[in-house]
Nucleic acid binder design. Structure first.
Lengths: 146, 146
DNA sequence: TGCTGAATATAGCCTTGGCTTTATTTCGGT
DNA sequence: ACCGAAATAAAGCCAAGGCTATATTCAGCA
């Protein structure tokens, strides 16, 4: 049953820009996930080893190593062979930003009434697409409720 | 300045599952975007041509054609050479679902206080990561405000 | 101290989703 | 009716992010 609804499209360049941004976001999402996880492992264990990173991300070791190399290329992490992985200043800053954003997203979802589990799980995907403007609105929204 | 915060991680299998799901979502996101756009173009113009799809998505024509072929492989669309693209039943159903979800996400963001522009733009990325449970919570939340 | 098992790294392959370049087909205007 | 421009399709390239299989290095323990 196909419901007829009024349909309108954004202006072409606007729409193209949006989709482009979404694509970019997806490419940085991976980096953000790695950086956040590495920061967590460092905070908890004092070290972040590729094998742990791989297990946490549900990925094979070589895949993790490849991504870690990309982090190094991008100046977010450092690693010497057979030592653990560490974050650069930039990496640490990114991790902090990502972690705070993650918590805000989870909190907003929770306040809205999303069950804990779903909130945590969905936030993992959602957070990478939350712009600065949206993040600010989220913060204000949370402040209202408290 | 690195702020110390209490950090804890989800259980390993839980976390791996979440990341895995996020990865899967990204692979279906593209299909969803195409299907939604094709539905919109069909509704507005009566036809969806590769060149328009490409322009709207901010992508080269060949890239669009490749993705359209993938849609065909997945049974979501049909297209004969030099004719436009059409949706199958499944494709139309997906388009309907995606469009309704998109509007709900935009509405929720707006109610929270996100500016129109940012809401529309961010929803483009966010919507693909909204689970059924979260979507239900969103609906309830919107109903409350009205 | 040496050896074995675990961790790490490397190599090579696949798919996806971008791109450009080139060839083909369609269609509108004279 | 035709011809040239625009749309479409086809071919071939690239990077990212998966994988398995194969070295290599490390580290703990007998």
């Amino acid at each position: 049953m196909t419901m007829k609804q009024s349909v309108s499209l954004p202006a072409e360049p606007t729409q193209a820009r949006r989709f482009g941004k979404t694509r970019t976001a997806q490419s940085t999402a991976l980096l953000e996930d790695y950086v956040e996880l590495i920061a967590d492992l460092l905070a908890i264990n004092g070290e972040a080893r590729p094998v742990d990173i791989a297990r946490r991300l549900g990925v094979s070791h070589p895949t993790a190593v490849k991504s870690i190399n990309r982090l190094k290329r991008e100046g977010l992490a450092t690693a010497r062979p057979y030592r653990g992985v560490f974050l650069t200043e930039a990496g640490q800053a990114l991790a902090d930003k990502v972690r705070s954003r993650h918590r805000i997203v989870v909190d907003v979802l929770t306040v809205i009434g999303v069950p804990r589990d779903a909130a945590e799980a969905d936030a993992e995907g959602i957070e990478h697409h939350v712009s600065e403007a949206t993040l600010r609105a989220f913060s204000r929204f949370l402040k209202l409720g408290s």
